[in-house]
Each structure stands twice: as structure tokens, then as C-alpha cells.
Amino acid sequence: MKRYVLGEFGEPEDCVEALRKLHEAGVQGLDAYSPYPLHGSDEALELPRSKVPLVALTGGVFGALGGYVMQAWMNGVDFAINVGNRPPHGFWTNIPITFESGVLLSVLSIFFSAIFYFFALPRPYHPVFESEQFRTASLDAFWVSIETEEEEPVADLEEKLRSTGARRVHTVVESA
């Protein structure tokens, strides 16, 4: 069963500082929770660069290509409409929809990859929600959590969190 050692901080800077210290001390399974993005938390945790831009680019390129090919094939090949003997395949007239479908697919891939893949949401249950006090994490407090499988390091980790200046420390256990 997973255990989360939680520590609450009153100021975002203190939280980031604690995060940095714990990370440097080699503590595994660190995470922080805050009502708004913490400046410096990415560096403190040494998170790798986000892959969201790559997903956005891929979506955009496929959307634009797909949009263009769709128009070229539908109007130029499969169902060519002759209007005043203009060429059925018109490059310039395909541009607006190519742009729109590029944007559309890029937006859809950013949104759905963020929600389902990068955030791994929707997730109705997470062990940190076991703590009633943890509700402040989305309101006005800043939390650091340390994830661990075993029970024995918990006391040690709680002590470490306290030493970084957390005002409240406790541990939650994943319910079976």
C-alpha cells in the first residue's frame, strides 16, 4: 500500500525551498501541491522538459496535412465540380480550411493529451485526498508529499519534512 508523507507550508517560497532541499538530499517520490503554479518547482524537482509542445506540433502538422489532402481529394479527385472551367484543385482556396484544421487538431491534441496522458486525469481517488487538511492545497496553502511503499521510513521522512519548516506534517495511507 502506498503511503504519502504530507507537509504543509504557508508560503510558496518556503515550499519550493523545502522541495529543493529534499530533492538534493536524494529523497525519492517527491511532489508538491499548490493552488497556482510554483515558481522554481520545476527546477527544484529537476523535471524534464514538457512534451506538450511536441504533441501540439504533431497534432498541428497532421491536422493541416489532413485538411489539405481532404480538400484536394474531395474537390479535385473524388467529386470534381467544374465551375466556369476553373481548375477543380485550387491551392489558395484550400488555405483557410488547412489552417483551421491544423489549429483544431493541435488544440484537441494539446487538451486531450494533457488531461488523459500528462495529468492522468480524470482520477476520482488519490491517496492525498484521504487527508481532510489537504483541502487547503487548492485554496491557500502549499504542500509537499513524499511517496513511499513501506512503512518503516515514514517516521524518518516526517522528521525530514519537519526540519525543512513544514507547519503541519502527517501521513496518509492509500485505502484498499
Binding site: 508538491a32 520545476d42 487548492s138
Partner: peptide, 14 residues
């Protein structure tokens, strides 16, 4: 949908 404001999520969210 279970948002908990994790730093790892904010990283992508921003």
C-alpha cells in the same frame, strides 16, 4: 476531474 494541483501537473499545465 480529480485535479490536485501537483507540481508535475502544473509543469505541463503552464
Amino acid at each position: 476531474i480529480g485535479w490536485r494541483g501537483s507540481a508535475r501537473h502544473w509543469h505541463h499545465y503552464k
